[in-house]
Nucleic acid binder design. Structure first.
Lengths: 197, 197
DNA sequence: GCGTTACGGTAACATCCGTCACGGAACCAC
DNA sequence: GTGGTTCCGTGACGGATGTTACCGTAACGC
């Protein structure tokens, strides 16, 4: 029984190639051949590892969620309190570095690809909701006085702020500078942490 | 010199077909043949009217800006004061109806198409900045006490909130309901209109 | 009414897409 | 070493894409 391969490692490598192509050439450039070239193999390997382009994209989207999730976990763990945890998680979701701006471009690419593709949309929506739920939980840690619905409303505003800044900065980083992103996030954050009432 | 056509009307019709295809089939389905079918003509007419696919997309993006601009003008004119004008313009930019959700899908499609296309990106960024400038002006009307930089910061947060909600609602309208969109926008709006200091 | 001219449909082009069948190469058991 | 089995690169396929050249046709000036 010869020749075993590390299937998971190949899937990770190919998914990383999907991100690289998506960040560099955008959604129109995301072809199996481009992914294979990026990964240093042929389309043969890609289609032996995944059941077609759709499965490849879904796995790449899953892995992106895993990656951002780990970063959020680390941000939560390093924080000194509930408010710091919420702030750190949201700050680490912004496009404050070139690497993160690349990631935002990839996120936009997946979003646009998911709109007409029900399978990919299901995956994309699930991960977006998971982030929303995470933020709602952190809001609850900061404001246990809030009812669940109020936490959800605060989380929606925070997540929309972050993803809006990411989408805008992906196309126009000169206008949506890191400083402006941070300032905008702090504005919304203040409505959660320092309610006027 | 026979047979003159209304070139502008054709351009508008073809651009409207671009929106329809982009809303229904997404960016991957946006082909010249699909646009021609939607407009009830052939690719021959499309390419006699525009210098290729890129020019068609840029014009369609221009027209989308014009359309949203007219809506914002109407919202501003109908408002009873500076605060109402700001609120109305932002509310009309949200995805509160099916038609607006379609428009948000189109906006996401243009964004994703613009990321790897410098010409289209230039157009897209210009229109996004115009909206930002408009919002900054309305903020100035509400809060003449604010310095220009502070107005800009407030406008960035408001625009990011609106576009973030649109992007999220485009893929997941069940989570980002009209009510939640309005509530989230009011939260950010309150930091501009009722500053805690 | 006729000729000229712009218009727009048709069909082809080369290219690229996703996918698949084939065959050689690599690897482990014996 | 030898056989058997898995892996993966090769090359081809049908179809779709953007673009172009061609040509019939409809409309205006005279």
């Amino acid at each position: 029984m010869p020749r075993h391969r590390d299937v998971d490692a190949q899937r990770r490598r190919l998914s990383a190639a999907v991100w690289a192509v998506l960040a560099r050439d955008g959604l129109p450039g995301l072809t199996l051949r481009a992914v294979a070239d990026e990964a240093g193999c042929t389309t043969g390997l890609v289609l032996h590892t995944f059941d077609g382009k759709g499965a490849l994209l879904r796995h790449a989207r899953d892995l992106l969620h895993e990656r951002t999730g780990l970063r959020a976990d680390a941000a939560t763990g390093a924080a000194t309190g509930p408010a710091a945890a919420l702030r750190e998680v949201l700050l680490h979701a912004l496009s404050l570095t070139d690497e993160k701006r690349e990631e935002a471009r990839v996120w936009v690419g997946f979003l646009a690809a998911a709109l007409p593709d029900d399978d990919l949309r299901t995956v994309h929506v699930r991960h977006n909701r998971a982030f929303l739920t995470r933020v709602a939980g952190l809001v609850g840690d900061c404001r246990p006085d809030l009812a669940p619905a109020a936490r959800q409303h605060a989380a929606v505003a925070l997540v929309a702020q972050v993803e809006g800044l990411n989408a805008l900065a992906a196309a126009d980083p000169e206008t949506y500078t890191p400083h402006r992103q941070r300032t905008a996030l702090e504005r919304v954050l203040s409505t959660v942490l320092e309610p006027a009432d």
